[in-house]
């Protein structure tokens, strides 16, 4: 059975039954993950910290050895031929790993020289990438003198210097201010336009929804869902939601209130969420049809348990709801 499958499109990444158990760890960090990334696709990995996103990226980029299963990047088995795999992949890590002894431009040029890009090509490419990523005004500055957003852009530009078939970005917008994040998103959208395959990990549902053609939701080392953001949200079978926060009364408990709310006509499902303030109860109610008419019945049920409703929000389901639905807990 060929790896090149699924219609006319070629696979950029194929992962099958990937298992990772770290030395001395009591449980598997990856419990048999399988997925495929098509060429030219932006593929998002959504999950909380410790879900297995970075482990998956680590295996695909040859820095972590799989315990079991198979991972292929651009046709190269990463475990069997790590050197070959490094030729065809580019990595933008979570933390700054730029060469502090080199200037911005030298960082790009030396990276290309490690990958055998001819001298004339790499000088030219470095200049055009510095221009494209808004770094052309200080090519001779040292990385330490730049902001987090600029560092992130330098690392992307560096990774593109050897024209990788697949670009891996591990939590690229963590720690960036909103403007820097938007600039980064624009750049990733441009890469997609240009046909680069991008695999990105994030714990930010907006980022996953905005950038990705398809999103994999991962938690505790298991792939829970994989589809386009639209399909994932539609798969909720619910058009609207009602978010209620309340102060608990002297009697009654959260579980039985949840059951009572679930018994109301027009309610599909009720998920209890963590209350950010930590004192109240919070529920997300998936509703058939319009949620507004349900506010009064909900208030009645809540009042009957002695609790006091403090906040009600009507909303469209999003990727976070999908995540909550799948895992029973909030993303962050």
């Amino acid at each position: 059975m060929p790896v090149v499958a699924s219609g006319e499109t070629t696979l950029a990444v194929e992962v099958r039954d990937l298992v990772k158990r770290y030395a001395k760890a009591p449980v598997d960090s990856l419990t048999g993950v399988s997925f495929q990334v098509k060429q030219g696709e932006v593929f998002g990995f959504l999950g909380p910290n410790g879900a297995g996103k970075s482990t998956t990226i680590g295996i695909l980029t040859t820095r972590i050895r799989p315990t079991g299963g198979r991972a292929v990047v651009a046709g190269v088995d990463v475990a069997a031929d790590p050197v070959g795999a490094r030729r065809v992949l580019g990595v933008v890590p979570q933390q700054n790993n730029l060469d502090r002894s080199l200037s911005v431009r030298q960082n790009l040029i030396y990276h290309a020289s490690y990958h055998g890009v001819p001298r004339a090509t790499r000088n030219q490419l470095a200049d055009s990438l510095l221009e494209q990523f808004g770094l052309a005004d200080r090519p001779d500055g040292r990385p330490d003198d730049f902001s987090g957003g600029q560092i992130q852009r330098m690392m992307i530009a560096r990774a593109l210097m050897h024209d990788p078939a697949v670009l891996f970005l591990d939590e690229p917008s963590t720690g960036l201010d909103p403007a820097a994040r938007l600039f980064l998103w624009e750049k990733i959208a441009e890469l997609k336009e240009a046909g680069t395959t991008v695999v990105i990990t994030t714990h930010d549902m907006d980022e996953a929804a905005t950038l990705s053609d398809r999103v994999a939701i991962i938690d505790h080392g298991t792939l829970l869902a994989l589809d386009t953001p639209q399909q994932l949200v539609q798969g909720m079978h619910s058009e609207r939601t009602l978010d209620c926060t309340m102060e608990p009364g002297p009697t009654g408990d959260a579980a039985s209130l949840g059951i009572a709310l679930g018994g109301l006509a027009g309610v599909r499902a009720v998920d209890q969420l963590d209350d950010p303030a930590g004192t109240g109860w919070r529920y997300r109610i998936d509703v058939d049809g319009e949620p507004a008419p349900l506010v009064a019945p909900v208030a009645t049920v809540v009042a009957e348990t002695g609790a006091k409703l403090t906040d009600v929000r009507l909303g469209e389901p999003n990727l976070e709801d999908v995540f909550i639905h799948l895992t029973g807990r909030a993303l962050r």
Binding site: V3, V76, R87, A165
Partner: peptide, 26 residues
């Protein structure tokens, strides 16, 4: 049940570049 790649592996832009030359570049 594990599929095998068919044909030669996809090659990067500079597939003839050997590890020796990378070592020398470093």
């Amino acid at each position: 049940g594990v599929p095998q790649s068919v044909g030669p592996p996809t090659v990067g832009p500079v597939a003839h570049w050997g590890p020796w030359r990378t070592g020398l570049a470093i």
